[in-house]
Structures are given as C-alpha cells and as structure tokens.
Nucleic acid binder design. Structure first.
Lengths: 192, 192
DNA sequence: ATACAACTAGTACTTTCGTTCAACTAGTTG
DNA sequence: CAACTAGTTGAACGAAAGTACTAGTTGTAT
C-alpha cells in the first residue's frame, strides 16, 4: 500500500485524480444502470476517456467495482458518524437517513444494496460491506449494552432500508423511528 | 392456469414441461453465477437445449427472470406457511429458516436477495419481491397486533438474513431467535 | 539534454451477447 | 391422407463486451 512513494508529487497526483474521476464515473453508471451495467466501456464513455485508461488504472472489473463501492461505503460511514457526533436523537437521525432512500438518496441506497448483494458472492467486497453494519452497530452501542438489542437494530435498519426501496410510499420518518426504537427495545416513545 | 384448454394434452403438456425445465435451469444458473450470469445462452447450455428454445418460450430475458425468481418466491412462501401451520414456536421456525442461509440454503437465499435488489429497479419484479415480506408479516401478526412490532420483525428477518449471508459464522439459531423476539417485543426468553 | 517511468490514446483481436430466420418433426384436426 | 400448428433445431447476424498491444506524450531525475 502506502509504499512511502519516493516518486515526487507531479505524476502521482495526476494519476490519483484520474483514478478518482474514473471511480466517480463508475458510481454514476452504477446509480443509473446498476452494478450489472458497469463495464470498462460504459465507464470510459461516461468519463469521456478512452477505454484503455480504465483498464490501465483498474486491471480487472472487480478492482473497479471494489474501489467504487467502497467509496460509496465511505460516504455512508461519514453520514453515520455525523449522526453519532450530533449527539441528538440517534434513532431519529438514523430514521431520517433511511427515509432518504425513498427520495434523493435512492440511487445511493440502491448502490449500497447492490454492493452487499455482490459481497455475498465476492469475498473481496465482504469487508467493505461489513463496514456499514459495523458502523450502525457502533451507533447502537451508545444506546444499549445488550448485544442482542444491537444486532436487532442493525438488522432492522438494513431490513427497513430494503423495504423503503421496495415501496417508497411507506417511507415515514416517524414510523421508521418507532420501528427502530422497538428493535432496540429502548424508549419507543417519541422525544418530547 | 386451467383456462379449459380446447387443445388436447399432447402439445400443451410438452410445452409446459419445457417451460418448467428452462425455469429450473435458470435457477441453477442464478444460484451458481448470480442473476448477472443469466443469459439465453447460459440457460440453454445448462438445460442442454439450443439457444433458440429459450427465446421461443421467453421472448425477453426479463420474462425469464421474472418467471424464475417468482418460482423461488413460491417455494419460500410455502416454507413460511409450513412454519405457520406447524403451530409451534413461530419465531424459532423463522430463525431456523434464516440460519439455513448459512449452509444448504445459501444459494437459494442469495437468489432471493438478488431478486429483491433487482426488484427495486424493475417494476415487473416488485410484486413478487413484496410477496416474501407480506408472508413474514402475516406470520408476525399471529403473535402481535402492533403494526410497528410486525414491521420490526419483518425488517429484522430481512436484515438478519443479509447478515448471515455476509458472514455465515454468525448463524446461530438461538441467537437469531433472540434477536427476532426482541424485534417483536414478545417473550424474549427461550422456551423452557 | 537525455533517459526513464508514468500516463494517454488509438486500435485491433477474440468472445459472447440478444435476436432472428428458414427449415424440420411430430402431434391434431378435418 | 392432407392440412395445420406447436414444438424444435442449427446457423447466422450485428452489437457490444473484455483484453491486449503499440505508439505517442509528459513530467522527473540524473
């Protein structure tokens, strides 16, 4: 990894920027057409670069998918940490995050879900997929010491997200929060 | 269905059998390579028939996927109804069903999950995907009248299944049952 | 400035995809 | 028996895929 590059910044930086560009283009493709739509060619076309560049930076399609989807996971992680740091109603913050999957965040949520589905089959993606669950678990541990309760919340959050994706009309923040609260077996009553 | 076919049995029956054969072959491909691996050619090869036959019975790939995945959903539905009819510990039956996803039922569970992921993108698959959740919900209503509790159980079951798929080592029936019980907010203590 | 490594670009090869088509077989009907 | 239709077959098409290769460009170090 790091390999404390003796190479000076000029070239390396340009390369990293290209890399980031390609990852972003990949994410746009995933959001539009799903993980199945990701090919060297579609990504290159989306980024406006020749096909050979995508294969130069990502030798195999799997490399590309891993990079792109772990990038998605990173932004998700940041969101969850923000909820934890805000220090307010954690469950409500989580519920709002989940409810987003019905509207503006739908494509991102879909990409997340395709990641975890892919991860079950490709070991390379598994640790990335687990990161999401670990973050939610950590969030839950702030509210309950019972491992079963924590597991219940993580599972419920995942399942609720899937449900919202399946019919977006059911995405009501209050309701989601109530369900989450029930899973955590903590104060199910809404805050005053 | 019945549609009191004026056609005599010979041709019609042969056709239906072919149809079923192709669907089965499709499921084997899905279980082995995922939904992305389903093509007219791979399915035909798996079934040992020429490619043109699969297009004869299923004009488009979507038709084939819908048929195959709704077949999976049917067997799942049957399993859940069996749990309900057994009349014993419903949560335990559900936990056992989920725990199966770590072992022998892993491929089937994976196929189910790919269905619901696909369903979020293709409206044609949506009702099929919802059937699974509706069945679990019905199962839960036998134990609780609180809609939030029912929703929590459905979500938890879905999320637990995803978790087991992600790391099969965590598939402990007792633990899963405990988590499910907590979600339903019903007797979390194990049976005597 | 020269040499070298990182980067960019274009192109070509091979495979596989979805789909179509004309011909052939075998049951059904009149 | 003859006409008809559902079922079946193998071959073929163009489009798009993954990958590999070669030539050219740019920035860095000696």
């Amino acid at each position: 990894m790091g390999e404390d590059a003796p190479v000076t910044d000029g070239r390396r930086l340009r390369g990293l920027r290209r890399r980031a560009e390609i990852i972003e283009a990949t994410l746009r493709v995933v959001r539009r057409d799903g993980a199945a739509g990701v090919t060297h060619r579609t990504v290159a076309r989306e980024a406006g670069i020749p096909t050979s560049l995508t294969t130069y930076y990502f030798a195999t399609l799997d490399d590309l998918l891993v990079a792109a989807l772990s990038s998605v996971a990173d932004t998700y992680t940041a969101r969850i940490r923000a909820i934890a740091d805000a220090g307010g109603d954690i469950l409500r913050g989580l519920a709002e995050l989940i409810a987003e999957s019905a509207g503006p965040g739908r494509e991102r949520a879909l990409a997340e879900r395709e990641l975890s589905t892919l991860a079950a089959r490709r070991p390379a993606l598994r640790p990335v997929a687990r990161r999401w669950r670990d973050n939610v678990a950590e969030l839950a541990r702030a509210r309950s010491a019972d491992p079963d309760a924590v597991a219940a919340l993580v599972a419920a959050a995942d399942g609720l997200c899937a449900g919202v994706l399946l019919d977006p009309d059911s995405a009501d923040v209050e309701r989601i929060r109530a369900v989450l609260g029930r899973a955590l077996a903590a104060d199910t009553a809404p805050a005053p």
